[in-house]
Computed example of a mutant assay.
Amino acid sequence: MPQIHPSAVVDPGARLADDVEVGPHAFIDANVTIGPGCRILHGAHIGRWTRLGANNTLYPGAVVGHDPQDVGYKGEEAWTEIGDGNIIREGVTIHRGNRPGTQTRVGNHNFFMVNSHIAHNCVIGNHVILVNGALLAGHVEVGDRAIISGNCQVHQFVRIGPFAMMRGGSGAAKDVPPYCINDGLNWLRAINVVGLRRSGFDAGRIRAVKEAFKTLFRANLPLAEALQRVAEDPGCTADVRLMLDFIRESKRGVGSGRGSSRE
């Protein structure tokens, strides 16, 4: 049976795996499913219509699956889906979807540090890190192995590409392409070389991405022309094509290099 502290409140309609641990003064609402190996530490709160996979840890004061911060939300059934192996530290907030049948989705093996916020309808990939105070507005998408540094702010509907990084205190009101470092407001400073090395990219793969970055964000070309040049280059790799596809699919536009005519 789950280990539930006597001071915790668990709705009878919640379903907990046999080895779940629930600490003092934690609260688990109705229509919640919690998978094996999860630890819900003291004072954590899990709102209704939330599903947690296996081996997640919610630290004290974390709030997962509560109402979205949206004045149009009227209590309709909307969901929060959490994968496996996530670390959700003190004061983290992850809100459910803001309209009937919608959801906020979090993948696997992410690390959300103290007081970071994931708003309604966000989609978070795998191995993502949100550092203390990072704030994601509604409908933000974050790709695998991206890093959102401390006190960063991401505007609603913005996409952060895989392996991208936002430097501490920076803001993104436009999409951040894969592999790029976002600095200031919408400034693409460079390629996240350290992150790529840590993720197993060899020198050749990194070199190809860096060359594409120079053409796209340093050559002062119209974006359409820069995209075509990179696509037609014989050295265009699968990694580079991922970047090109991401940029072409952007609805908000992407950040630019400082001093670019597109800034």
Rank of each mutant, 00 (worst) to 15 (best):
P6C: 10
P6G: 11
P6W: 10
S7P: 08
S7A: 11
S7T: 15
S7K: 13
A8Y: 00
A8D: 02
V9G: 04
V9D: 03
V10D: 02
V10E: 03
V10T: 05
D11W: 04
D11E: 12
D11S: 15
P12H: 02
P12T: 02
G13L: 09
G13C: 05
G13V: 03
G13R: 14
A14K: 09
A14L: 03
A14M: 06
A14Y: 03
R15T: 13
R15I: 10
L16I: 08
A17I: 03
A17C: 06
A17E: 06
A17R: 09
D18N: 14
D18Y: 08
V20K: 11
V20G: 08
V20P: 03
E21T: 14
V22W: 00
V22M: 04
P24C: 10
H25K: 13
A26Q: 07
A26D: 06
I28L: 07
I28W: 00
D29T: 04
D29W: 01
A30T: 11
A30N: 13
A30K: 15
A30C: 11
N31M: 09
N31F: 05
V32A: 03
T33Q: 14
T33E: 14
T33F: 01
G35K: 08
G35W: 00
G35A: 08
G35V: 01
P36D: 12
P36S: 15
G37K: 11
G37C: 05
G37H: 08
C38S: 12
C38V: 07
R39V: 12
R39I: 11
I40G: 07
L41H: 09
H42Q: 14
H42V: 08
H42F: 13
G43I: 01
A44C: 06
H45P: 01
H45I: 15
H45L: 13
H45W: 12
H45N: 12
I46D: 05
I46S: 08
G47M: 03
R48H: 12
R48E: 10
R48C: 09
R48T: 10
R48W: 02
W49S: 08
W49D: 14
W49R: 12
T50I: 12
T50F: 04
T50P: 04
R51D: 05
R51W: 02
R51S: 13
R51P: 00
L52A: 11
G53L: 03
G53I: 00
G53N: 07
A54M: 09
A54K: 15
A54H: 11
N55D: 15
N55V: 01
N56H: 09
